[in-house]
Nucleic acid binder design. Structure first.
Lengths: 129, 129
DNA sequence: ATAAAGCTTCCAGCTACAGGAAGGTCAATC
DNA sequence: GATTGACCTTCCTGTAGCTGGAAGCTTTAT
């Protein structure tokens, strides 16, 4: 299978697939005599795995570690657990920040009933202090 | 006042201040005979304004527009309103996404009671489908 | 024969800076 | 007068995760 087909099967663009190979997130693809990359089923699985991790907002570096860890079946599971909880914790922090942010923005959005910049209370708030 | 003092007053690093000048978010600073940048009160206000907008996660491009708009006191206020509501909407979208994410991660985090990678149910979930 | 589609590599750009090198300047100290 | 240390300057590189585009192959279809 050529790169474009792998791309359409997995929903990951050819550009991105090459990029993943560049940064060694994917192994170097086999090449034909013409220099084209050729892929197998295995590569579909890898890309799907990556895609799913990315949906969880994992950094590529972490995904790389997960991929590495998978090759040693006897390794302890703690690393995986650790990555997931870290991720979860970051999400929660982000949620908290966004919540504060929403309140601030909401307050701002409601504060201006004027028509001209010189009276704009949003800007006055932002300049304040 | 020299750049370092402006930095310590506003909490924005000298690097960042120079960067803001580069991208014309701040006007070109006055220079002494030695080439050093010198600043006034006005610059403190500008930087504080920028800092406050950044706390609201506004992109620098938007902040630039806000700064530009401020110089024309008779312009309509709608642009400012628009930016704020856009920002608010994005925050809400992000919140929704994070909420979904948290659920997914939570489900994953709870799913693995095993010890070895080869049995890890987190990885199995991630590979699934 | 030619055109279109697909492949390759490489280079630039996006955001918002931070780190560091190489070199000039200023104030204080010996 | 010389030196030290703290500042200042510009310029280059790197960060994350790609995307767009150029220049130049190959393959396939007409």
């Amino acid at each position: 299978m050529q790169i474009k087909q792998l791309a359409s099967v997995t929903g990951v663009s050819p550009k991105t697939i090459r990029y993943y190979e560049d940064i060694a997130l994917l192994p170097q693809a086999k090449r034909g005599d013409n220099g084209y990359r050729y892929y197998q089923e295995q590569d579909i699985s890898s890309l799907n795995f990556i895609r799913r991790c990315k949906e969880l907002r994992m950094p590529l570096a972490d995904i790389k570690r997960l991929l590495a860890v998978q090759s040693d079946g006897n390794a302890p599971c703690a690393q995986v657990d650790g990555l997931i909880s870290q991720q979860l914790e970051q999400i929660r922090i982000a949620q908290y920040e966004l919540q504060q942010l929403e309140q601030n923005l909401q307050a701002l959005a409601n504060c201006c009933g004027n028509e001209q910049i010189k009276d704009c209370e949003i800007l006055q708030q932002l300049r304040a202090n």
